[in-house]
Simulated assay, not measured.
Amino acid sequence: MSGRTEGGTLYVRFLLTPMYEAALPQLMALLGEFTPQVEALPPDAALVDLRGARRYFGRSPVDLAALIRVRALALYGVECAIGAGPGPMLARMAARDAAPGVTRAVPEGPDGVRDFLADRPVAELPGIGRATARTLCEYGLDSLGKVGAAPLSTLQRLVGVRAGRELREKARGIDRGTVVPNAAARSVAVERPFPRDELDPFRHRRALLSGAEELGARMRGEDQVCRTLTLTVRYADRSTTTRTRTLPEPTAHSTALTTTAYRMYEALGLQRARVRALSLRAEGLAPAEHAAHQLTFDPADEKARRIEEVADRARAKFGPGAIVPGTLAA
Results as ranks from 00 to 15, higher is better:
G3T: 04
G7C: 07
G8F: 00
T9I: 03
T9D: 01
L10I: 04
Y11F: 08
L16I: 01
L16Y: 04
T17P: 07
M19N: 07
M19R: 13
Y20V: 08
E21G: 02
E21N: 05
G32I: 02
G32S: 00
E39H: 04
L41Y: 08
L41C: 12
L41E: 12
P42F: 13
A45P: 07
A45C: 13
R51W: 09
G52S: 06
G52Y: 03
G58H: 09
R59L: 15
R59D: 07
P61R: 00
P61K: 00
P61Q: 01
P61F: 02
D63Y: 14
L64G: 08
A65H: 06
L67N: 05
L67F: 11
A72N: 04
A74V: 04
Y76C: 08
G77P: 01
C80V: 00
P86D: 10
G87S: 03
G87P: 05
P88K: 04
M89S: 09
R92L: 13
P100V: 01
V102F: 02
V102Q: 10
R114N: 02
F116H: 08
L117K: 05
D119I: 10
D119M: 13
P121F: 01
L125R: 03
L125E: 09
R130E: 09
T132M: 05
Y139C: 12
Y139M: 12
L141H: 02
G148Q: 01
A150P: 12
P151N: 02
P151C: 04
T154A: 13
R157A: 12
V159H: 00
V159P: 00
G160N: 03
A163E: 07
A163M: 08
R168Y: 03
I174Q: 14
D175K: 04
D175L: 06
G177Y: 06
T178P: 03
T178V: 15
V180Q: 13
V180E: 15
P181K: 15
N182D: 04
A183H: 10
A185D: 11
S187E: 09
V188H: 15
R192T: 14
D200M: 03
R203G: 14
R205L: 15
L208P: 14
L208H: 05
E213F: 08
D223I: 01
C226N: 10
L229A: 15
T230I: 00
R234Q: 11
R234S: 09
R234E: 11
R234K: 11
A236E: 15
T240D: 13
T241D: 14
E249S: 12
H253T: 12
H253R: 15
S254G: 01
T255V: 14
A256D: 06
A261K: 04
Y262G: 02
R263L: 15
Y265D: 09
E266M: 15
A267Q: 02
G269L: 07
Q271D: 10
R274T: 15
R274N: 14
R281E: 10
R281L: 07
G284P: 14
P287W: 00
P287M: 00
A291H: 12
F297Q: 10
D298S: 08
P299F: 02
D301T: 04
E302A: 00
E302G: 00
A304V: 00
R305L: 06
I307W: 08
E309L: 06
V310H: 05
A311F: 06
D312S: 10
R315G: 03
A316S: 07
K317R: 09
K317M: 06
F318A: 09
V324W: 00
